[in-house]
C-alpha cells in the first residue's frame, strides 16, 4: 500500500510541477470543441444533436494525447526499470500510475465539462448525467490506455501506433457515454448506460494493471 501511495504521490507531484504540460490535453480538448461549430454549423439544433458525440470524441483524443506521460518519461530516465526490479508487485505500481494519471487528466476534464457543455449547447438537465458518465468512463480510458502505453514505451515514435492500439479499445466507452448523454439530453433515463460504464470501469481497473504490467516487462526486457 505504501508503494501505491508513494508512486501515486510522485506522479501527481510531477504533474503539478509541469503544470503547463498537464494543462495541454485540456486546452487541446477546448480547441477541438471550438473547431466543431466552425466546421459544421453554429446552429443550435445541429450542435445539440451532435454535442454528446463531439464531447466524448474530444475527451478520448485528449486522454490519448496525455497517455504517453504515464510511462514514457520513466522509461527514458530509467526509473521504470527500478520499479520493475523493486520487490513491490508491479500491477499495484501500475494501478497507482493509472490513478495518478486519472487525477491529473480525468479530474480537470470533469471541472471543464460544464463549460464545454455550455459551449456545445447541451441542455442543463443532461449535465448531471454528463458528469456521472465522466466519473465512470474516464477511469476506463486511463486503465486501457495504460496497456497501450506500456506496449509502446520502448519505441521512439510510438505516438501514431498508440492511437491505433488504443482507440479501437475505447469504442465501448464512447458508445455508452455518448448514448447516456444523448438520452439525458432528450429527457430519457440514462441509468442503463451508466451502469455499463461502471461495469467497464470495474473490469478495466482490475484487469488492465495486470496486462500493463506484463506489457512493461516485455517492453523493458
Amino acid at each position: 500500500m505504501n508503494a501505491f501511495l508513494a508512486v501515486a504521490r510522485r506522479d501527481l507531484l510531477l504533474a503539478v510541477r509541469h503544470r503547463a504540460e498537464a494543462a495541454n490535453p485540456l486546452l487541446f480538448f477546448l480547441v477541438v470543441v471550438a473547431l466543431v461549430p466552425l466546421g459544421l454549423s453554429p446552429r443550435r439544433e445541429t450542435l445539440e444533436l451532435i454535442a454528446p458525440g463531439v464531447f466524448w470524441i474530444g475527451a478520448l483524443l485528449a486522454t490519448l494525447l496525455s497517455l504517453e506521460r504515464m510511462f514514457r518519461s520513466d522509461f527514458d530516465d530509467g526509473s521504470l526499470e527500478l520499479m520493475l526490479v523493486s520487490p513491490q508487485p508491479l500491477p499495484l505500481i501500475v494501478l497507482a500510475k493509472i490513478v495518478a494519471h486519472w487525477l491529473a487528466t480525468g479530474l480537470p476534464l470533469l471541472v471543464a465539462a460544464p463549460l464545454i457543455a455550455l459551449l456545445l449547447g447541451l441542455p442543463a438537465r443532461s449535465l448531471a448525467v454528463l458528469l456521472a458518465a465522466l466519473v465512470l468512463g474516464t477511469p476506463t480510458l486511463s486503465a486501457v490506455g495504460a496497456i497501450g502505453v506500456a506496449l509502446t514505451a520502448g519505441l521512439r515514435r510510438g505516438g501514431m501506433l498508440l492511437s491505433l492500439l488504443v482507440l479501437p479499445l475505447y469504442i465501448p466507452v464512447l458508445v455508452f457515454a455518448a448514448s447516456a448523454v444523448s438520452a439525458a439530453a432528450g429527457g430519457l433515463p440514462a441509468a442503463g448506460q451508466l451502469y455499463l460504464l461502471g461495469a467497464l470501469a470495474a473490469l478495466s481497473l482490475t484487469l488492465a494493471p495486470l496486462a500493463a504490467a506484463a506489457a512493461l516487462r516485455i517492453s523493458v526486457s
Binding site: I147, L151, L165, L169, A211, A214, A215, I218, S219
Partner: peptide, 8 residues
Amino acid sequence: AAGLLAIV
C-alpha cells in the same frame, strides 16, 4: 508484445 495485444 503482439501476443499480449491479441489477448487484450
